[in-house]
């Protein structure tokens, strides 16, 4: 099981390296939205609560652009059924999920500093910021991998992924924004919110794992 997960992760990683399109598109999407926001504000001073919301909107849509095709390449190449013969469904799910998480962490390593520089924002509590972002992308990758499996069979794909992902990840989205604001202001944060966030990460992980079995 662990071996299969690792193999699928490694396979996706190699394919990702060879065909850089998906990853490049996600990074450029993040950069484009940040540039669009920053340019249109023309140096206006923005409140921290607004900045926190902007940051998560950028992360959400860049995530959508990056991970919506998690299963699409294999579906198009006709190799998805072979993959299903090779590995247990749970191994496929968690292998893909780990790869998604790795790409999202790579995305935020690029996105977060760029955002802070472009919007002239000082991260007061850097430890809280990193924890929040990490907890946020864990939830996004858990729900996102299952959602990507759902949209693979859709004939019309344009825009479908974010529509499906948003309501499901709202319990992640709202607490992360509040926590990010606290991190920007370096004020005392609500531990309750962090617990809510982490428990929804766990709920989404378990639910994806249970529901994925019904998909083939």
């Amino acid at each position: 099981m662990t071996e299969q997960i690792a193999t699928i992760f490694w396979k996706d990683f190699l394919v990702g390296l060879r065909r850089k399109a998906t990853f490049a598109a996600m990074m450029m999407f993040a950069l484009t939205t940040m540039a669009a926001l920053s340019l249109s504000m023309r140096g206006a001073v923005v409140e921290n609560n607004f900045l926190a919301a902007l940051l998560w909107i950028v992360i959400f849509f860049a995530t959508s652009a990056g991970i919506s095709g998690t299963f699409d390449d294999e579906q198009a190449a006709g190799t998805l059924s072979t993959l299903k013969i090779y590995a247990a469904p749970q191994a496929i799910l968690f292998g893909k999920m780990l790869f998604t998480l790795a790409s999202l962490i790579a995305l935020t390593i690029f996105l977060l500093p760029t955002f802070l520089i472009l919007f002239d924002c000082s991260a007061g509590n850097i430890f809280l910021l990193i924890t929040t972002v990490l907890a946020g992308v864990i939830g996004f990758s858990a729900a996102g991998t299952l959602t990507a499996a759902l949209t693979t069979s859709a004939s019309v794909k344009g825009g479908l992924f974010p529509i499906l992902l948003f309501p499901v990840t709202l319990p992640i989205f709202l607490p992360t924004i509040s926590l990010t604001e606290s991190a920007f202001n370096s004020e005392t944060f609500s531990a309750e919110l962090l617990i809510i966030l982490l428990s929804f990460d766990a709920i989404l992980l378990v639910a994806s794992s249970i529901l994925f079995d019904y998909l083939d």
């Binding site: 729900a143 859709a154 309501p167 499901v168 319990p171 639910a207 994806s208 019904y214 998909l215």
Partner: peptide
Amino acid sequence: VSAVYSLLSVLTVPF
């Protein structure tokens, strides 16, 4: 697919 999504969306209810 839609049954799975329907059940996934129920998870937001407690929130």
